[in-house]
């Protein structure tokens, strides 16, 4: 185990003995690569998962047809997809993104669907009563009503995204924080492993915070009702 001081001096050293610190350009390239991969995978998972989940929750028929397949694919661990992903996709980039995308997509979809189911029937009845059509109920009731669950899903999605990203990067790829950790292990440069882990912690925390900030700005009604804001 590397000592804390060894790790820290390596991390902030202008001339790092193990070759990785905040002064080396590779460090930022690794961080950037990982962030980019997660961003693409998370973006895709959100763009596809939210509408898909809304549809699953809103249309009984669609759910009856699609959900069983979804439920069989969902429990397959992201790691089990690695060999197939490498065979299916060309290059090093797409398999890693695919591995990251998959569990994020499942988390987003499932939570969005549960969000639609969580909406109290009385809101929908009230909207019908006030003259709203089905499409308007979808926009004015279903979407905002599911939003708290959707953002829970996005938080989980971000978490499992980073989780599978690191797994993917350890197996394929020549950049990224997962790669840093794994190469640190193979090259017996233990401080590098710790730097990779701490950096993952930091970027993971920042990305979750970003999701939370977007969530609270979209759900002022919730912030205020839970007494999290100024209540004005």
């Amino acid at each position: 185990m590397p000592g804390l001081t060894v790790v820290f001096t390596e991390w902030v050293s202008k001339n790092p003995p193990y070759g990785l610190s905040i002064y080396t350009p590779e460090y930022y390239q690794h961080v950037l690569t990982s962030v980019q991969r997660v961003a693409i995978a998370f973006g895709l998972a959100t763009l596809l998962g939210v509408p898909f989940g809304l549809l699953l929750g809103w249309s009984r028929k669609f759910k009856d047809f699609v959900f069983p397949v979804f439920e069989i694919l969902r429990p397959i661990p992201a790691l089990a997809w690695v060999p197939l992903a490498i065979l299916m996709f060309k290059g090093t980039e797409s398999p890693v993104i695919f591995i990251t995308f998959l569990p994020a997509f499942f988390a987003t979809t499932l939570n969005t669907m549960l969000g639609v189911h969580s909406i109290d029937e009385s809101y929908i009845r009230a909207a019908y009563c006030l003259g709203a059509k089905r499409a308007q109920i979808f926009r004015h009731v279903v979407l905002p009503g599911a939003l708290p669950f959707i953002f829970t899903g996005l938080q989980i999605s971000m978490g499992v995204g980073w989780f599978s990203l690191v797994a993917g990067e350890m197996i394929s790829g020549e950049y990224g924080l997962g790669y840093v950790i794994y190469s640190g292990y193979t090259l017996v440069s233990y401080p590098v492993i710790a730097i990779g882990m701490i950096t993952l912690g930091l970027v993971g925390w920042i990305s979750s915070a970003l999701v939370r900030i977007v969530g609270t700005s979209l759900m002022q009604w919730r912030v205020r009702s839970l007494g999290l804001g100024d209540g004005s």
């Binding site: 009385s122 809101y123 009230a126 009563c129 006030l130 009503g145 939003l147 009604w221």
Partner: peptide
């Protein structure tokens, strides 16, 4: 249902997001 008859329900059905 029609807008000539409006129901105020037993349970509050105000939209919490508005």
């Amino acid at each position: 249902p029609g807008k000539d008859r409006l129901v105020v329900f037993q349970e509050t059905a105000l939209f919490p997001w508005m």
